[in-house]
Computed example of a mutant assay.
Amino acid sequence: MATRTLGGRYQLVKRIGVGGMSEVWHGHDEVLDRPVAVKVMAPHQATTVDIVRREARSAARLAHPNVAGVHDFGTSANQPYIVMELVEGRTLGQHLAGGPLDWRIGVRICAEVAAALAAAHGENVVHRDIKPGNIMLTPSGAKVLDFGIAAAIGTADDDPDGPVMGTPAYVAPERFAGHPATAATDMFAVGTLLYQCLSGRLPWLRATPTELVHAECHDDPDPLPEIDGMPGEVIDMMSRCLAKDPLERPTAMVAALLLAEAVDARVYVPMTDFEPAVAPTTSWVDEPTSASQAGRHRA
Rank of each mutant, 00 (worst) to 15 (best):
L86Q: 02
R53Q: 15
V107A: 04
G8L: 02
V31R: 15
T75S: 06
K14I: 00
V144L: 15
N124I: 08
G93H: 07
H127S: 11
T138P: 02
E30Y: 07
G74H: 05
W103L: 07
D29H: 03
E85Y: 11
G133V: 09
A111K: 05
N134F: 01
A60N: 09
N66L: 12
R15W: 07
G141W: 09
L96P: 06
G122A: 06
H28P: 06
L145V: 10
E85L: 07
R90N: 11
E55G: 07
H127D: 11
V67G: 13
G7A: 12
V70N: 01
D33C: 08
K39E: 05
V126M: 02
G8F: 01
E123L: 04
Q94G: 11
M21G: 06
M84P: 03
L32F: 10
H26V: 09
P80V: 14
K143R: 15
E112D: 09
Y81V: 00
R128P: 12
I105M: 10
P65F: 09
L32H: 13
G106C: 07
N78V: 10
A56W: 05
A115P: 04
L117S: 01
K39R: 08
M84N: 02
T138E: 06
G7P: 12
G8D: 04
G74P: 12
R54P: 05
G27D: 12
P65L: 08
Q79L: 15
S140H: 11
A46H: 13
G69D: 14
N78P: 05
G69Y: 10
V24S: 08
D72I: 03
L12W: 00
I82Y: 03
D29E: 11
A37V: 02
Y81K: 00
V13N: 03
E30C: 08
A111E: 13
